[in-house]
Amino acid sequence: METAMPELSRDPLQFPETIVSDRSMAENLTGNWRSLRPVIDAARCTGCLICWKFCPEACVKLTDKVPLIDLAYCKGCGICVRECPPKAMSQQGEAGL
């Protein structure tokens, strides 16, 4: 039996006692959950930061200019689009991009 399962023949005292989290979930890219992509119309953006403030993914980055949406994480919830005061944002289907 043990030859069929080599891991079991290891000294079990080499296995960890506990498993703690010391790495970041930022390693987990969630951009592929997205079906709708938020797009900012720079001409209409007033830099009000509402999109940054209301992002549940914390993936809108502050810049001196138009905010940057980190598409590696954006799940496409659309809150930023819905809340944008000057209506400078829209959603585009990922399939068409």
Binding site: P38, T46, L62, D64, V66, D70
Partner: peptide, 21 residues
């Protein structure tokens, strides 16, 4: 990191609004 629409505007150079949080 990708910007929303890929275009960098030239007219908003300095953000006037400070983050409220």
């Amino acid at each position: 990191m990708t910007e929303g629409n890929g275009r960098v505007p030239t007219d908003i150079v300095k953000r006037a609004i400070k983050p409220s949080v």
